[in-house]
Design a protein around this nucleic acid. Structure first.
Length: 424
DNA sequence: TGGGCAGTT
DNA sequence: AACTGCC
């Protein structure tokens, strides 16, 4: 059996742990740059604030009743780790799927007592971390996801729902479940499934896997098997090293300032270098892109990207930055109001079996060791003292390009100076 | 009106 | 290099 453990309204729940005044209130957490609403309390859902809604599109009358917070990823990441720690006490097989979801395997466990076991686990997570979670149980990940939805929506389940793949109850539920509610099926696929006469999850389950593979891809074929209860989506590739590493951000406000883009590209590239070193990889090329706001038809639009090959495979932020800036110089167009820029490290290879190009100059062991030490020190400082404590290049006085996050709460659990104060 | 992938054209 | 799809 597989369990999907999903935190309820995760970001909002994290905020409530440290600020009980948010309990019973319509609370929302916004995405980066205070753009869209990405987490909602039950009360704000009641007011009709939809998932992914741009914050500025909320009716002002409704908005006044809501508490909208900027996202506090330092807090959510740390709370997520705490939840995972508790889950790990209940089974050795925990696959962290996202910041608020984990798949647990209960293979080899007594199946009669699984629901009870999950209730105990659920209560322990609540007690030890303050985060409410729901649990869906079945024999495949896709069905466990669906069971989890039911655990959240149908109060009778008390937070833990089990779905046996071949029961009448499962059939009845799948028959009324639109395909868009299935993990991996969204708008475009739904339209194409519709033309094949497939509207609900049961019809998809009964369709021929080969047929669907032909019309879609192996991904859709797997969904059919999964709906039949066959576990065939494997997540171990989650921990596999990434094939590309991307770092990009929107600017707090649009900018046409070349220095802003330079600084942003430097910071994003440094961050990408950190991620690359963490997975012990080397990049052979770096892509740099700039973009205008596609929703502003009143301004000229300009989207441009450029791949810059690196002289040799590298994980040295200084070499990466040099290449990225060279790329930026070639695609920067003056007089354009830019909304976003970023970099992507490409053609990643493993640190150990680095291959030198024909023209690449080998680096002496001594020099390489020095570079590695420098980068390791940089990473350590930034890890322990907060992002961007140490940066490459000249810092600027005003980071006019930096993100908007006007309503961020303290990083209660990861910063000594931002600990929650019980009484002053 | 977010960010980070993978995959296709 | 640009675009699509997904979460």
């Amino acid at each position: 059996m597989i369990a999907l453990v999903d935190c309820n309204n995760f970001y909002v729940s994290c905020e409530r742990v440290f600020n009980p005044k948010l309990e019973d209130k319509p609370v929302g957490v916004m995405s980066n740059n205070d753009g869209c609403v990405v987490a909602r309390s039950a009360e704000i859902k009641q007011l009709g604030v939809e998932m992914g809604m741009p914050a500025h599109q909320i009716d002002p009358h409704i908005r006044r009743q809501c508490i909208l917070l900027s996202s506090n990823y330092a807090l959510y990441g740390d709370m997520s780790r705490r939840v995972t720690d508790v889950l790990s006490q209940h089974t050795p097989h925990v696959d962290v799927y996202s910041i608020d979801e984990s798949f647990l395997s209960f293979e080899g466990f007594e199946s009669d007592s699984l629901e009870e076991r999950c209730q105990v686990m659920r209560h322990q997570v609540r007690r030890d971390t303050g985060i409410p979670v729901s649990v869906g149980l079945s024999t495949s990940k896709t069905l466990a996801k669906i069971a989890n939805h039911r655990a959240k929506k149908e109060p009778g389940f008390d937070g833990v729902a089990i779905m046996h793949p071949d029961s009448d109850d499962t059939r009845a539920f799948l028959e009324q479940l639109p395909v868009t509610e299935i993990w991996g099926v969204a708008g475009r696929s739904a339209v194409r499934l519709h033309t094949l006469g497939i509207e609900n999850a049961w019809q998809l389950r009964e369709a021929s896997p080969q047929h669907l593979r032909k019309h879609f891809s192996v991904v859709m074929e797997r969904i059919v098997w999964e709906l039949r209860g066959v576990d065939c989506i494997h997540l171990d590739d989650m921990t596999q090293p990434k094939k590309q590493i991307m770092v990009s951000r929107s600017f707090g406000r649009l900018t046409n300032n070349k220095a802003d883009l330079h600084e942003a590209i430097r910071v994003h590239t440094s961050r990408a270098g950190e991620k690359l070193r963490k997975q012990q990889g080397l990049a052979q090329a770096i892509m740099v892109f700039v973009r205008t706001n596609r929703f502003r038809d009143d301004l000229p639009s300009y989207n441009k990207s450029l791949v810059v090959p690196l002289p040799r495979p590298s994980d040295d932020s200084r070499e990466l930055v040099r290449a990225a800036i060279a790329g930026l110089e070639r695609i920067f167009k003056p007089g354009i109001m830019y909304q976003k820029c970023g970099v992507m490290l490409m053609d990643l290879c493993d640190h150990d079996n680095e291959q030198l190009g024909l023209l690449a100059e080998p680096v002496s062991d001594e020099k390489r060791e020095k570079n590695e030490k420098l980068m390791a020190t940089l990473d350590k400082l930034n890890r322990e003292h907060g992002k961007n404590t140490v940066r490459l290049g000249m810092p600027r006085k005003v980071n006019s390009w930096e993100l908007r996050c006007e309503h961020r709460t303290p990083r209660y659990t990861t910063r000594w100076d931002e600990l929650a104060c019980v009484k002053t």
